[in-house]
Design a binder for these strands. Structure first.
Lengths: 256, 256
DNA sequence: GAGTGGTCTAGACCACGCG
DNA sequence: GCGTGGTCTAGACCACTCA
């Protein structure tokens, strides 16, 4: 490992040389190992001293690289124990990407959600789906429709689209049989790890079918939440559109 | 300054001594100076070496304290120039707390918003307002109603409530005369700096008056965005409820 | 007690902005 | 050329976890 910052690969027409510091290079190397699956979700990665020795840099430099990975929630530090690959399969990260909370209390206090798979079918990607998933229109995708019910109240109705290839073999049965968050299943069964997502939120009114499934009247206001979820390297691997009832829950967001 | 981590003040019934590291103590001292107004928004704070000398710690310790303040957006680092107190009065932080973006393009590309003050009156806090602002019911507050229009389309209708005391002398005229974000005015004219906010989002339908002001039909779906904004030390200083049209814009949120 | 992450230091050098 | 923040190192010690 070079001891000083080296210029980025001079591909394209980089106008500025754009130096990248050593710890950024280390970060990319660790990211590569995460991506290659060298360490599984929930497992510990090597200690800072080990990594420092492997890359021939000081512990401080590795530390700064890991600090950034931890800030991006790709990795979790636990003092006295080690640094672990982030996973969706743990209690306190159950609903990592779900911002809907009850008007009083917390999602945890409501107990586990009831998950009903309404449909799961293979189809060809329409224009909007293809664009969101960075596919060509017509490429095969899986569409899943499901309903989440909290404390007996149907609250979220959502459609998900997944690229068919990485999720080969996914069926309604396998979805129904798996107990735990869907993203945890994607990790365990298909090796697909969602690390980041982007949401677009709008207010809409319920259509007939939607209203029926959510047990509200047609024309009721609903929150439309469109989410694109990404794996490493900003590759989109899921697009979903959720309709949220907001008469008992609300979407919570912290700004700073 | 103590050279080693010291126990927190043993007030209450702290079960664990709870040590706080030196850099956290430094962070609190700097926070105190920010709060006391030792440095104004937009101004540079002393250099890391100066602060290190003042507090009798190493530059690295000061650095870590400032790193956290920068992560919380209380302060902005600029290489080669210094570290500056965050402000709402700058171009690229114009709409720091506004997550509404046009379906295509960006808020910047839409040019400046038209701001119309619909009303501004002094009143006594109702229960919900008092609770949000941590006041007693009946204490005096200011209520402002305004309409934001982007490219000719009225898009946001919002009511704001402010505690009357810190905002003594605020009138509809002063609001209309000030050009720039409202939070910038609060900073410049009243010394109130919003550093953090929390939002609750729901889908609602437009009532008659609201529909008229937003130029949509009664019963149209709207995003209801309730925001509590805080100054230093988590003191709430504003509560607002906005109604957003989401036919041309959407609420954008990044998850990780 | 061994091993891990977390803190703190001191000093060297680099990249950047500005006069 | 100077001062600023940014990087990198090496080493000491602390706090936490677990066997």
């Amino acid at each position: 490992m070079a001891k000083t910052a080296i210029p980025d690969a001079p591909e394209g027409k980089a106008q500025t040389p754009a130096f990248s510091p050593l710890y950024q290079q280390i970060k990319q190397l660790i990211l590569g190992s995460l991506q290659q699956g060298e360490w599984q979700p929930g497992e510990a990665i090597p200690s800072e001293l080990e990594l420092a020795a492997r890359f021939k840099v000081s512990q401080g430099t590795v530390r700064k690289a890991i600090d950034e990975l931890a800030a991006e929630n790709l990795v979790v530090r636990r003092q006295g124990r080690g640094t672990f690959v982030a996973t969706h399969a743990e209690q306190h990260t159950q609903y990592r990407f779900l911002r809907l909370v009850p008007d009083s209390g917390s999602l945890d206090s409501e107990g586990p959600a009831q998950r009903d798979i309404v449909a799961c079918k293979r189809m060809r990607a329409a224009g909007d789906v293809a664009q969101a998933l960075a596919l060509r229109a017509g490429e095969p995708v899986l569409q899943i429709t499901r309903l989440l019910t909290f404390q007996g109240v149907p609250t979220i109705l959502e459609d998900l689209w997944l690229p068919a290839t990485p999720f080969k073999g996914l069926t309604a049965e396998r979805l129904a049989d798996y107990h735990g968050p869907m993203y945890a299943m994607f990790e365990a069964e298909f090796g697909v790890r969602m690390v980041r997502a982007s949401e677009q939120i709008r207010a809409v009114v319920a259509h007939d079918e939607q209203a029926q499934l959510l047990a509200v009247s047609t024309g009721s206001p609903l929150l439309s939440v469109e989410r694109t979820a990404y794996t490493y390297n900003d590759i989109p691997m899921e697009w979903r559109r959720g309709l949220y009832r907001t008469d008992t829950h609300h979407y919570h967001n912290e700004l700073s």
